[in-house]
């Protein structure tokens, strides 16, 4: 069985971790927003803007890490816009989120056309290169899969731990979680629900943008329209699948990416070439829906998700 053999190669798992990386950033970002009580449907557009901003910055001459920071700042700006409208003004998170996605996507495409009016194929940049972590890379199977990745992947994995520690072990994390569960209690403590929620959306949006930047600065070395291609929506499904917990969300992202890596490989087998390629491309989206169905009964949704908080109201 070719398929079983694929599952035991290090290159397969290395690909899975690589495919998971942008999803990990964006899923963490969405998770932070939702934990504070705000659904951020701007995710898809914010990823597009981050993918462009990081790549364009590096193309214009900044360093790679500065590019990542610029992508994050652009994402945070859209997060500021989203949270201003949804938190203090309490506007529909669905409508504002979709509006932010439209705005981020169209302004990115506009900026692309202004910056590169003449090009037919987008220019390439010197993207992040894989870095082999000494010693650890020699562990069989896991070593090459986990420790011969690009620095952004390592950052994604570190961020999972960091976000989990902050959410569960610090007063800040407690405040964020409480803002999403019981905002009235947060207000009673003398904390500003508005500030906590806005902060969470801004930081979360920054992470989404870095997820987008991974695509242009690490996975590929160029920017294409439609390159985010629904990954943002998949991340929203992954947050549900992960029951709003960073560790489980990581597991979900890697599992999902493993299926994605598998379908690419199965496509190339003698069996796969007999099946229309669209069938394989559908699988990630179908899997996301299946995951939602399986997990929805058990999911512990933040109690105040999508419910605006207006001080003085009961």
């Amino acid at each position: 069985m070719e398929i079983i053999e694929i599952l035991f190669t290090a290159s397969f798992w290395a690909a899975a971790i690589r495919i998971a990386s942008p999803l990990i950033f964006a899923t963490l970002g969405e998770l932070i927003c939702e934990r504070a009580g705000v659904l951020n449907l701007g995710i898809e557009g914010i990823m597009v803007s981050g993918a462009f901003a990081g790549w364009m910055a590096v193309y214009s001459g900044t360093g790679l890490w500065s590019g990542v920071c610029i992508a994050m700042l652009v994402g945070m700006l859209f997060g500021l816009l989203h949270s201003t409208l949804t938190v203090p003004f309490g506007l529909s998170q669905h409508v504002v989120g979709l509006g932010v996605t439209l705005l981020a996507t169209s302004s990115t495409y506009y900026a692309y056309r202004l910056a590169l009016p003449e090009v037919t194929s987008p220019p390439k940049i010197e993207a992040f290169q894989p870095y082999e972590v000494p010693i650890l890379v020699d562990i069989p199977l896991i070593g090459t899969a986990l420790f011969s990745q690009t620095p952004l992947t390592y950052l994604a994995l570190v961020l999972v731990v960091l976000v989990a520690v902050i959410l569960y072990r610090t007063p800040l994390g407690l405040a964020v979680r409480a803002a999403g569960e019981n905002p009235a209690a947060v207000a009673a403590q003398g904390l500003s629900v508005t500030a906590i929620r806005m902060g969470a959306v801004i930081v979360g949006s920054g992470l989404m943008a870095v997820g987008g930047a991974f695509l242009t600065m690490s996975a590929f070395d160029s920017f294409f329209f439609e390159m985010v291609n629904g990954r943002g929506w998949i991340c929203i499904a992954l947050v549900v699948f992960g029951s709003w917990q960073p560790g489980k969300a990581l597991l979900g992202a890697v599992l999902f990416a493993a299926f994605d890596a598998l379908q690419i490989r199965v496509q190339q087998t003698s069996f796969g070439t007999q099946i229309p390629y669209q069938f394989f491309l559908m699988m990630p989206y179908i899997l996301s829906i299946l995951a939602l169905i399986i997990m929805s009964r058990r999911a512990e949704v933040p109690a105040a998700l999508m419910i605006p908080f207006n001080k003085g109201e009961r």
Partner: peptide, 8 residues
């Protein structure tokens, strides 16, 4: 099943 219709 209570699956959010936005994502589906």
């Amino acid at each position: 099943f209570g699956v959010d219709e936005v994502v589906t």
